[in-house]
Amino acid sequence: MIKSLDPRLTRENIEENNLIAPLTPMDNWETYEVFHQKKRGDQHMHVGIVHAPNPEMALLFGKEQYGRRSITANIWVVKTANVFASEYDDADMFETTPEKQYREAGGYKVMDKINKYKKANKA
């Protein structure tokens, strides 16, 4: 029997070799991805996962795990299985090229023309 400094544990009469059956897959359920919004107006940000048997409990665990210290306005939970993600190996599909400046604000420069026009029409 375990004789602990903690009287509560000693009272439990725990055998020292209390071998138990190993945990089997899904004993800790599936996972949910948690999204946390700090305050109204902010984006929800992915903060991590929780293991839960259903969405309601995922929300409860998400609140404890990710909302108990920091300011929180709202959280979302989404089953990991329901997230469809791009592959890091395909990251090149997000690359842009210099000739695509037509879709950026910096690709438009008009001051030269304006100054030239003003100068020519000053007289």
């Binding site: 899904m26 004993d27 359920w29 599936e30 996972t31 991805e33 048997p53 259903n54 990991t80 299985a81």
Partner: peptide, 14 residues
């Protein structure tokens, strides 16, 4: 008791 047999485990994303 809370386990739902129709669910299956997927490795978390991040």
């Amino acid at each position: 008791a809370l386990y739902n047999a129709t669910e299956k485990y997927v490795t978390p994303l991040a």
